[in-house]
């Protein structure tokens, strides 16, 4: 494990893993979408609009999982000051923002036929919106601080402060009376959802997870290469200085 903490070894490992992960993503996403559209039944109340669930719920899970991964990377940055942790943090923020946006947009599209409105200011929706804002703030922080190691430490601190929002999102539907329905898959006493809907949902969740892992690995790889390019450019600028001075 420690061996892959070296960025060069990591690049080699990522290069080998990414094709397999991409293939797994394509397979599971294909299967999931097929099940969603052709196998999963329409809801007796909601009709076919229930199928938005197969996008909405996995993106909601991923929006939080991404934050948890980013938090562990932030710990890696603060405790070990490891460049790989910095890259993992930076790569996760835009992905998290995208999954959260996907969750908000699909939720909004689902809410219009179900609740008669695009948006309500209840605890679940609001706390997810706050998560989106935290992701945007992190992206802004990454873009503003030019020195990568300094940006990583600042982002890590903000990430760790923002982690209080994650349990609030998870338990908002239990703590407050909301329009949003309570958890139906991960709850005490087993899932409250019929198997014909549960299976497509789980496969979509697996597909989204593979998608996230693929994109995250690719983004980490890009970030490592971008850092190298930056360092080489600065070195080259200074080396050039010497050669032209002696010429």
């Amino acid at each position: 494990m420690l061996k892959y903490a070296n960025p060069t070894n990591f690049l080699a490992l990522a290069g080998r893993l990414i094709p397999w992960l991409a293939a797994a993503t394509a397979l599971s996403l294909g299967a999931g979408l097929f099940l969603t559209f052709f196998v999963a039944p329409d809801d007796y109340q909601q009709g076919s609009s229930v199928k938005i669930m197969y996008l909405h719920v996995p993106s909601a899970w991923l929006s939080m999982m991404c934050y948890v991964i980013m938090t562990s990377a932030a710990l890696g940055t603060i405790v070990w000051r490891h460049p790989l942790a910095d890259a993992a943090q930076k790569a996760a923020a835009p992905l998290g923002a995208i999954f959260t946006l996907l969750c908000l947009v699909t939720g909004s599209l689902w809410g219009k036929p179900m609740w008669g409105t695009w948006w309500v200011w209840d605890a679940r929706l609001t706390s997810v919106l706050v998560l989106f804002l935290i992701y945007l703030g992190l992206i802004g922080l990454w873009q503003t601080i030019e020195e990568p190691a300094q940006a990583a430490r600042a982002a890590a601190i903000l990430t760790l402060v923002g982690v209080v929002n994650i349990p609030i999102i998870k338990f908002s539907v239990d703590w407050w009376n909301t329009l949003h329905q309570p958890a139906s898959v991960f709850k005490i006493g087993g899932p409250a959802i019929s198997g014909s809907m549960l299976w497509p949902l789980l496969i979509m969740a697996v597909a989204f997870t593979f998608l996230f892992l693929t994109l995250h690995l690719m983004a980490i790889r890009n970030e490592i290469l971008r850092r190298r390019l930056r360092r080489l450019s600065i070195d080259a600028a200074h080396a050039e200085e010497k050669s032209e001075a002696t010429a």
Binding site: W121, T126, L129, L133, L136, G137, G140
Partner: peptide, 12 residues
């Protein structure tokens, strides 16, 4: 982003 935050603070 600042605009978005200001708008979403008001309902709170």
């Amino acid at each position: 982003v600042f605009f978005l935050i200001l708008v979403s603070l008001t309902p709170f």
